[in-house]
Design a protein around this nucleic acid. Structure first.
Length: 423
RNA sequence: GGUGAGGUGGCUGAGUGGUCGAAAGCAGCGCUUUGCUAAAGCGCCGUACUCCAAAAGGGUACCGAGGGUUCGAAUCCCUCCCUCACCGCCA
């Protein structure tokens, strides 16, 4: 959520920066300003009337204590009270409308965010390793996995429908090995604290991290209980500290969490095809940070490096791109995507998206810290995958497939998996 | 699911219709005293919104949330949420 005062005072710059995202969000600025003017006018009048009422009511109390008759004044104040109620309703309506408008407005891209219209304008910021060469035609993970009995889409569909998977045997064990490997790496080497949160969340949490109100159709909802399945651990983890005022000594907070992620993927291309690349449910190890505004930029670089470290340890060729203004997510000010090479797909797969949200989410969840002067300021929040598991598995299977049809795992996984190879 | 208790400022905790944004204590900040520490004394010490060009200074709201009664609600009534305890059920 953007600061209404900033919008009021720098409406032209704000409009221009939102326009860089494409879309139509910047066109709402004038509506917001108008609503803000109306709201403040109503509030000012309301406050004047309330002030009158308060004063007169106090006088009534004093006069009654002296035994005076106050019935005529009471009638007068009653009329005032009716007017207050009416204006109060009007002001509340305007306030709700303004909040709604602000909640629908995306974040401002960071000054450093490259300007561009769409994904084709995303600059590559780093590339690590090289595309491996094969003496044979690399197979897709789907073929490899079915041959080695690592997962089963047909049976998962019997249970849950299409775009779900059931890992089986060594596949399930590999999944578990990856979770442990990633959590150990981030806690032991990167300084994160492991948390294991609820996976079912309230609407307010989703508003906090900005999945709601705009992206409701992407969420699984449990209507009876007014709860949603978390689409990413970002939601429960970041919201752990909602409505809090943190001490600066606590910052930065760095959390890592394993969680399943549930996404309806309404309108997504590619859901009809088999494979692990896009599903309604997948596992992920997430990285979340809560920082001061001063530290957030460097913490984003570190967070991205932590996610990249996963791929480096596993010897997987990847590239890191920065999303341009036309491609960054709704709440993000700045995002790095890490894409791993998958030879069976002949494509780079996004395994991590590392973003800084500035104070956008913190405003929505009223997450603040007390600075050195004792003033309450909004925190900055960040998150990134570290990493998504099915796509990591895709890369591992496809990259490390052997001519004999087996898969040789990279060394860091041997102990976690309990074996050096699959098949 | 049932029964009971309860939700007040950073914390503890008073307050059951008016002068209460809220006693008191603790913590915190400033000053005085002091060789230092300690102790004592005095003062300050919530948040949000809003008015004013800004500062100074006003105003309004907020005692879990929402509604109601009243000239006036932390206080009375209703609904909901949450926490705790015990019982039941259950991985």
């Amino acid at each position: 959520m953007l600061d209404i005062r900033l919008i009021r005072e720098q409406s032209e710059q704000i409009t221009a920066r939102l326009a860089a995202r494409g879309g139509e969000s910047h066109l709402r600025i004038n509506d917001i300003l108008e609503c803000d003017r109306e709201r403040r006018a109503a509030e000012t009048r309301l406050q004047q009337l309330q002030s009158d009422r308060k004063r007169i009511s106090k006088e009534i109390g004093q006069r009654k204590a002296k035994g005076e008759d106050t019935s005529s004044v009471e009638a007068e104040v009653r009329a005032l009270g009716d007017e207050v109620a009416k204006l109060n309703e009007e002001a509340a309506l305007l306030d709700a409308r303004q909040r709604d408008l602000l909640l629908q407005l995306p974040n401002l891209p960071h000054e450093g965010c490259p300007v561009g219209e769409d994904a084709s304008a995303n600059p590559e910021v780093r590339i690590w390793g090289e595309r491996p060469a094969y003496a044979f035609t690399p197979q897709s993970h789907v073929e490899i996995g079915e041959r080695l009995g690592l997962f089963d889409f047909e049976r998962a569909a019997k249970v849950s429908g299409s775009a779900f998977v059931c890992f089986t045997g060594a596949g399930a064990r590999l999944e578990r090995a990856l979770v442990n490997f990633l959590l150990d790496l981030h806690t032991r080497e990167h300084g994160y604290t492991e948390v294991s949160t609820p996976f079912v969340v309230r609407a307010e949490a989703l508003v906090g991290t900005s999945q709601l109100p705009k992206f409701e159709e992407q969420l699984y909802r449990c209507e009876r209980d007014e709860l949603y399945l978390a689409p990413t651990a970002e939601v429960p983890v970041t919201n752990l500290h909602r409505e809090e005022i943190l001490n600066p000594e606590q910052l930065p907070i760095r959390y890592t969490a394993y969680s399943p992620c549930f996404r309806r993927e309404a309108g997504s291309a590619g859901l009809g095809t088999r494979g692990l690349i896009r599903m309604h449910q997948f596992d992920k190890v997430e990285l979340v940070k809560i920082t001061t505004p001063e530290e957030s930029a460097q913490e984003l670089e570190k967070l991205t490096a932590d996610a990249e470290h996963v791929l480096q340890l596993l010897g997987l060729h990847y590239r890191t791109i920065e999303l341009c203004t036309g491609d960054i997510g709704f709440g993000s000010t700045r995002t790095y995507d890490i894409e791993v090479w998958a030879p069976g797909q002949q494509a780079y797969l996004e395994v991590s998206s590392c973003s800084s949200f500035g104070d956008f989410q913190a405003r929505r969840m009223n997450l603040r810290f007390k600075d050195g002067d004792g003033k309450n300021r909004f925190c900055h929040t960040l998150n990134g995958s570290g990493t998504a598991l099915p796509r990591l598995m895709v890369a591992l299977l496809e990259v490390y497939q052997q001519a004999d049809g087996s898969v040789r795992l990279p060394a860091p996984l041997h102990a976690y998996f309990g074996s050096e190879r699959l098949g």
